[in-house]
Write a protein that binds this DNA or RNA. Structure first.
Lengths: 235, 235
DNA sequence: AATAAGATTAACGAAAAGTTAACTTCTATT
DNA sequence: AATAGAAGTTAACTTTTCGTTAATCTTATT
């Protein structure tokens, strides 16, 4: 397992614990991000699409369980791994925690070795190795608020899942595979239809249009005389 | 079924999870013992002779699969029931667990009600099987309200049992082995018929149709131009 | 303003999948 | 070995969905 392929989001209100865990995970080569509360956690999760989110159960404002529920309620995170940090003897937190959708529990006090081995085991056993590096996570390709699940043939946008016809799906994957890059018509053409199949001039346009109709106009930009590119709508 | 007759051994390195499961099982009247690692599990199993052993797959040192193999290799435990706890989204087919001799899988996150009913179903079923004689490892795959009993070639749905012809059964197992994943026709084809056998275009369709006829239309979705996928009907 | 490139729309046709029944093969039983 | 019944496959046909086109409109660039 190449640890460095994995993104982990740590969430705790105590910066000491964040530092401690972060240090240990980074030493193992994980890509670690942190958040100090539930709200920040959800924001960062949307941006980063981590493989694993580790949540402290006890946090002011929004606790770990509530945060977990919120995250799980978004389809794009319906199968991200979530692990809780709990203090020993929190009787009812376990029950509520699994109801909320936790995959694992780690109890304080935390021993670095045990902690690391649990994290590794969780990632390894659940087998979500990212393909081709870059912006993939859980077999998802994510950019901005759009995720593409190639295995399930679904697009996930703003927490909503929907499917696309094959050609549109392929076209979107192509564009998203290199955000910002302008794909010429020829490139699109040969990548999606192949050299042998001959289609008319306006076919690509129509597919682009249908895509824009479904995901919104802001993502696919036309570069006149050249081609099309996918941009993160935020830009 | 009188729950109090049954002894269950829980094995997990996280004491919180042990407590949580233990609490829920005891509430139902089971006799529960616990162990924190594989070694302890084997010792306790020898002493207590439980009816069911529930093993977390992810444990440091000796993992659940190894522990399971060790236990099964002891003649006195050749037909104890063993169930695994696994993280979400694990691929049943890729799991060494059934080969190691697992009778059932329970995925985290664990919901108490589901957990209890699975445990009860397992104990109940095994009782019936053992009356009829030789029972090695049977293997029950469950998803949503459908369970597949590979040993007896039965589908259990809403408390009703029924059988399926071999090809339909294999097809269902394939799809269920990775819920949500779209299996292409080629994948289905080579997995169920193999490369050598040549069957016509509509053969898969017909099997899919027969399956839908029997389990209901909601479980198997068509992704046109790509293939089929199994979804939990709740979705 | 002219022109070229792209956008838009709806309609058409092809391809994929669904459906049904008939036919073949396999298996178990006598 | 004969045969009945079940399972599996095929063939013919229908339905649905998707991809493409054609015709027309809009926008950008010179």
């Amino acid at each position: 397992m190449e640890s460095s392929n994995y993104k982990i989001l740590l969430v705790d209100d105590e910066s000491d614990i964040l530092e401690f865990l972060s240090y240990n995970l980074k030493k193992e080569g994980f890509q670690v991000s942190t958040a100090g509360d539930g709200k920040e956690a959800i924001e960062k999760a949307k941006k980063l699409h981590p493989h694993l989110i580790i949540l402290d159960v006890m946090m002011p404002e929004m606790d770990g369980i509530e945060t977990c529920e919120k995250i799980r309620s978004l389809p794009e995170f319906s199968d991200v791994l979530i692990s809780f940090l709990t203090a020993r003897g929190e009787d009812y937190s376990q029950i509520a925690g699994f109801e909320a959708g936790a995959d694992d529990y780690i109890s304080k006090p935390i021993k670095p070795k045990v902690f690391i081995s649990r994290v590794k085991a969780l990632l390894k056993r659940s087998g979500r190795v990212s393909e081709e590096g870059g912006n993939t996570s859980n077999g998802l390709i994510s950019i901005g608020n759009i995720s593409i699940d190639r295995e399930r043939y679904l697009i996930i946008q703003d927490g909503k899942e929907f499917s696309l016809p094959r050609k549109e799906f392929e076209l979107l994957i192509l564009l998203v595979s290199r955000p910002q890059k302008v794909f010429t018509r020829d490139e699109i053409y040969s990548s999606i239809w192949g050299e042998k199949i001959i289609v008319g001039d306006r076919t690509i346009d129509v597919h682009i249009r249908k895509l824009r109709e479904k995901i919104g106009d802001d993502y696919i930009q036309t570069v006149k005389g050249v081609g099309y590119k996918f941009v993160d709508a935020a830009n």
